[in-house]
Amino acid sequence: MKAVSVTTIKKELQDKTDSELIALVLRLSKFKKENKELLTYLLFESHDEDAYIQLVKAHISQAFSEINTTSYFYIKKSVRKILRLIKKYARYSLKKETEIELLLHFCSCLMKLKPSIKNNTTLTNIYNSQITRIKKIAGNLHADLQHDYNLALNELIG
C-alpha cells in the first residue's frame, strides 16, 4: 500500500467529524511509540516550553550519568544514542530555541564526561559538529537571541 500525500490527507480530514478525528488520533497513537510521545508533547507539554526543556535536560543528564565509561566504544555508542533522543525531542517541539538549548546542554554534559572526550577523535568530532550546528541554527534567529546563544556558546567553548 502506498501512502498518499499530506495534502490529500488534510483534505480528507476536513470532512471528518470531531468524534471521527478523535478515533483516528487514538488509533494512530497505538501504532508507534513516537506517535504517542508526539501526542503527549502536543497535548500536555507544548503550552510550557521551558518546563519541557527542563524535563528533557534532566533526561539527558540522567542518560549521561548512566554511560558505561570503561571504554570509548561504549561511550561513543551512548553519546550517539543521546544525540538521537535530542533530535527526536527537538523535532517534537519545532522551535529552534529548544533545539539550541538541548544541544548546549548536550555539549556541556559531553565536556564534563570522564574520561575526557579530547582523547578520542570521534567524540571530539561529534562535539565539534554539534557546536557548528548550534552556530548555524542560532544564525537564523533574532539578533538578541543570537547574542544570548553566542554568549552561552563562548562560555561553553571556553
Score class of each variant (00 low, 15 high):
S108G: 14
R84P: 04
L94W: 02
L28P: 00
K10A: 12
K76V: 08
E45A: 03
F44T: 11
E66L: 15
K135A: 06
T98F: 06
A58M: 12
R80K: 13
Q54W: 12
K10W: 09
E97L: 08
S108K: 04
F31S: 06
M111G: 05
S116F: 05
K81D: 13
H105T: 03
F106D: 01
E12K: 07
L104H: 05
K95I: 05
T98R: 07
Q62K: 14
F64G: 02
V56Y: 05
L38V: 03
T121E: 12
L39W: 06
L43H: 12
I131R: 01
V6M: 02
E97P: 09
Q14C: 07
F106V: 02
K32V: 03
Q130H: 11
M111C: 02
Y72K: 03
I134T: 04
I67L: 04
P115F: 11
L38K: 12
R27W: 09
L145W: 00
K96F: 01
F31G: 05
S65Y: 14
L24V: 02
R133K: 14
E12Q: 10
N128C: 06
L103M: 13
I82E: 00
P115I: 00
L104T: 00
K36M: 08
D18I: 11
Y92L: 14
N125G: 01
H142A: 13
K77L: 12
S71N: 15
